[in-house]
């Protein structure tokens, strides 16, 4: 396992979390819970952007692992 693939795996998990939070925010009936899930989803989205950028950087540094 290279660093790039580890980070990619982490990015995939982050995307999964974002999707689950989104579905929880939509399915919850309680306003407070809805907004808590929504806010969490937004901050997870920011983390996702940073990681996506880092993955691109890593792919440039280790071109042989690109796409794996």
């Amino acid at each position: 396992m290279t660093v790039a693939s580890n980070v990619k795996q982490c990015l995939a998990t982050i995307k999964n979390i974002e999707a689950q939070l989104s579905s929880l925010a939509l399915n919850s009936l309680e306003k407070e819970a809805q907004s808590a899930f929504h806010d969490a989803m937004l901050s997870i989205g920011n983390i996702k952007k940073d990681l996506q950028y880092r993955v691109l950087e890593l792919e440039r540094m280790e071109p042989q692992y690109k796409g794996s």
Partner: peptide, 23 residues
């Protein structure tokens, strides 16, 4: 630069976990 980015996001995620854990 990446170290700072990872640290920042780890802290952000920690805050998120604390906010969400009651739910």
């Amino acid at each position: 630069k990446s170290k700072a980015m990872y640290k920042k996001n780890a802290d952000l995620l920690q805050d998120t976990i604390e906010n969400l854990s009651p739910y």
